[in-house]
Amino acid sequence: MNMIEMKDIRKEYPLGETVVHALRGIDLSVQEGGFISIIGPSGSGKTTLLNIIGCIDTPTEGSVKIGGEDITSLDDKKLTNIRLFKVGFIFQTFNLIPVLNLLENVEFPLLLMKEHKLSKTDIRERAEKAIEEVGLKDFLDHRPAELSGGQRQRVAIARALVTNPQIVLADEPTANLDSETGAAILELMKHLNETEKTTFIFSTHDPDVLKYASQVVKIRDGHIESTGKPGRSLKTGKTRSKAHVGKAGSTGKRRR
């Protein structure tokens, strides 16, 4: 089953009197459980693509389906609900709530879901479990400012995963981390991908990161330039950006 289906996605930004074409017709299908890396130079459109998948941005043209649901015509409220229930985000700059401690940050999206009959105990248990998975059980009361960069990113991962999203989007998750911490974070993401069957899509231009990906989509100037497995030469798209990328072959089951 395709978790994500994008057809002829174009994104244009007005910039003064000119128009910036961030995406110039992207076709992309991502299967459930994939661990996909989107690579490309700065300004190639990686972040724009991730933002559209994550319902943070909307395309100028084209259609996007997440879990079979067309999101291009949804209003803000519905898009927000998709972000809450179907998508997890890991930002380059962590973006934790500074006034909440580690546990409260991870609980935050669950508390937003509270109206969906999650009890206080459920929320606390799920948050603690997610924190345990990222190895920060001893830092529950710490505020973001009291954590290192790597620890903050792990909190962000726990927050992204605590809602059991179908997709986790990570925009250059290791860009602000040292190589050792970055590797640990990717190991963790890979582990969660394999054990929880969560679809991971992350952007990077760090070649070391690619080895973790099951599929690589290379973007240049708003086009998909090539797709393929890491370590092999990627297939090139000549006339139109089109890619179908599969899952990582995990055998794990999704948490529910």
Binding site: I56, F89, N95
Partner: peptide, 16 residues
């Protein structure tokens, strides 16, 4: 902006 935008990104509605 970062804090509020991030809250919106992880699913906080405008009403929140």
């Amino acid at each position: 902006v970062s804090e509020i935008g991030m809250m919106r990104a992880v699913g906080a509605q405008k009403s929140f």
